[in-house]
Computed example of a mutant assay.
Amino acid sequence: MFTQQLASFKGDQSCIRVVGHRGARGIMPENTLLGFEWTMKMGVSALEFDVMITKDHVPVIVHNHHLNGAITRTAEGQWLNTPEPRISELTYDELAQYDVGGLNVFTEYGQRFPEQIFMHRQQVPKLADLLALAMQPDFAHVGLMLEIKSDPKVDNFQMHREETVAAVADVVRQAAMTSRTILHSFDWELLHLCQQAAPEMPTSFLSQLPAHDDDKGEDSSLVFSQNLKQLPSIPKAIAEAGGYIWAPHFKDVTLADVQEARNLGLLVAPWTVNDPKDMGQMIQLGVDAIVTDYPARLQRELIKNELRWQRQDDISNATLTSA
């Protein structure tokens, strides 16, 4: 089941999949069409990106529940100061007035990615825009790891969850991209809603143990992770919940975990692995896929280990799909 959607994330003894995180955040402006296009041209197997809905229910690709001042400029080119508007309180037309093509190097967040290029006139994209881009024949081999963001601070939280899932599923279906899309979240209850509302798309369960601090400038996922430490087995809990991929924080995964997940029929795709040493450790664990801000860096490490990130049949199947 879900063979086609899972193919882009499934590794083997000679292949580990490269998943571009927010495109290639280490080099290109994150969650932008420019960044996604550049990353897909590298030959990555998949993209991982964040989706939520605007005030007028348009699914958009953005990580934080509010505009991040470290990457956001006004139409006049000024860095956005606090208070940072929440995505759920802006219409898409209002959101599109902002430029997210560069990093403010004087912020703590901006200093995390010194190699990222600086661009102008880069809007927060609609989910539909990325799907249209990914439908181009040259990108037919790329899978989509669509992370649905869940905002516990929004009014009518449960209703907002349901509306978000419905809006996302509707856009993916309209683009005829369900066969290439994985629904992915830290909010496991939201993933249950996905399984009910969009049973034609497999679910991927993110996890982060509370022992690890959030990255600077990032909305926290730990609100959804408080009970994970009490679970006897995270892979078993995911398998029982109907998941197909386990996406753990890379510091939380061991060889025994990978073996257990495999025995349960799960794929393993740790995030966000940026240091070559950590990449090497994940390679040694034999995970299926690695989510990274630096896809080219990961490609180099795979080459050093005589591994591939694509199979020949990936390209052949993509050609057949686009014909």
Rank of each mutant, 00 (worst) to 15 (best):
M1D: 13
Q4F: 02
Q5Y: 04
S8N: 07
F9A: 10
D12C: 10
I16R: 03
R22M: 04
A24S: 12
G26C: 03
P29K: 08
E30H: 06
L33N: 03
M40V: 09
M40G: 09
M42G: 10
A46K: 00
D50F: 06
D50Q: 01
I53C: 09
H57S: 14
V62Y: 13
N64D: 13
I71Y: 10
T72C: 07
Q78D: 13
L80A: 05
N81R: 04
P85R: 11
Y92W: 05
G101I: 11
G102R: 15
L103Q: 04
Q111D: 11
R112M: 12
I117V: 15
I117K: 10
I117F: 14
R121E: 14
D129I: 07
L131K: 02
A132E: 08
Q136I: 00
V142T: 02
L144N: 12
F157W: 15
E162Y: 09
E163M: 00
D170H: 04
Q174K: 09
D187F: 03
Q196T: 14
A197P: 13
A198G: 01
E200S: 02
M201V: 09
F205L: 06
D213T: 11
D214T: 03
S220K: 05
Q226K: 10
Y244P: 06
T254I: 07
L255R: 03
Q259C: 13
A261V: 05
D275M: 02
D275C: 09
K277T: 10
I283H: 14
Q284D: 15
I290V: 08
D293S: 05
N305K: 13
E306G: 01
L320Q: 15
A323T: 11
